[in-house]
Design a protein around this nucleic acid. Structure first.
Lengths: 191, 191
DNA sequence: ATTGAAATGAGACGAATGTCTCATTACCTC
DNA sequence: GAGGTAATGAGACATTCGTCTCATTTCAAT
């Protein structure tokens, strides 16, 4: 079992990595060690590479659980999905640098790698958003809808908006709201 | 002006980089030089880094021009957008490795970098697809539609499907077709 | 064939990366 | 407080990356 000191050292490294990334750099493990006030050798004892630190630091970004996320909102699926999108959008903005680096990790992983694939934090939230209105949708359409929404919600959507479309934040939110409404409506059974 | 020999060397390096990337590696400039049968020094004379070679190699991936892409297809906007998506999807599959590396380049570029941002190949195609039916749409909705479609068409969409949703190719195409239909319909003025 | 310039190859060099060893420090138990 | 173990720091070492120099090769024009 790791000692208190070891736990603290590990945390210091993760915190230091977060600080450096937020500052806009892509730090080496040596720089992370210096920021954390530990020696280079110690840093290499805890993490094999700077990428490993960054990847783990990004995981720390908290996604709210469905319970609190949907508190005080009705059953309207579009409104609930929009709340998911707003939350994820805010998170993407607040941690853009870390998330970009995490995305890079996923993009470069070997196709046959034994390491676990990207974790998927958005699908559970999307499903929770649609759950109360499940009966309003045609089953086949619901299967399409929950996947289609994943293209608009999350880090990749931020990348498309900023790097490809080069639109500002308000515009991106507007486009996504419009699309979410359109997709949710399209999935509803004609009533 | 560059001599024929220089042009050939440059091309050899780009070809070599493409071969190595397709083999699944993330080659260093030294490895690219070896594959191209030139010395390391020569490789550094033509490109400042392996990333630069890879980025330029990715640009070579040909996107068809609208003229030929829409040959023999009617004015129906959904059908035309679907053809854009099918084409881009095929391209993404055929050049997945190169495109992943190109995406990494874009993700890591400095926010205030002087280098040109990501080139956007999909928007002109989307606009060309919607052009003949422009009158069918409400102007405000058209502005949203052309941007919303960009989230489904292109490399990032492939990443979401494979890495995040972990769905197979046929399923991805199905979801995207459904979403494209839904979005195009939603943008039409009630008639 | 000869000449001259462009392109190349071989290798030295400094910086950064990752691994390893060994002495020293900090912490826990008694 | 003393002793033992875990954690750390300092630095040596091999490797890779990017830059540079200089001798050699290739090519085109005569």
């Amino acid at each position: 079992m790791p000692s208190n000191r070891a736990i603290r050292t590990r945390k210091d490294l993760l915190d230091a990595a977060g600080r450096l990334v937020r500052k806009g750099t892509t730090p080496s493990l040596e720089e992370i060690a210096a920021e954390a006030l530990v020696s280079r050798a110690t840093a290499y004892r805890y993490f094999p590479s700077a990428e490993a630190v960054l990847a783990e630091a990004a995981v720390e970004i908290g996604v709210p659980d469905p319970k609190t996320l949907f508190a005080g909102i009705g059953d309207d699926p579009a409104a609930r999905v929009e709340r998911v999108d707003t939350t994820m959008h805010d998170l993407s903005l607040a941690h853009e640098a870390e998330l970009r680096l995490m995305l890079v990790q996923g993009l470069l992983r070997k196709p046959d790698s034994a390491v676990p694939a990207r974790q998927n934090r958005r699908t559970p939230l999307i499903d929770a958003a649609l759950e109360p209105a499940r009966r309003q949708f045609k089953p086949a359409a619901l299967a399409n809808l929950r996947r289609a929404l994943a293209f608009f919600i999350g880090t990749e959507a931020m990348i498309v908006a900023k790097d490809v479309l080069a639109i500002d934040d308000a515009e991106a939110r507007k486009v996504k709201r419009w699309a979410i409404r359109a997709l949710v409506e399209a999935a509803k059974s004609r009533s």
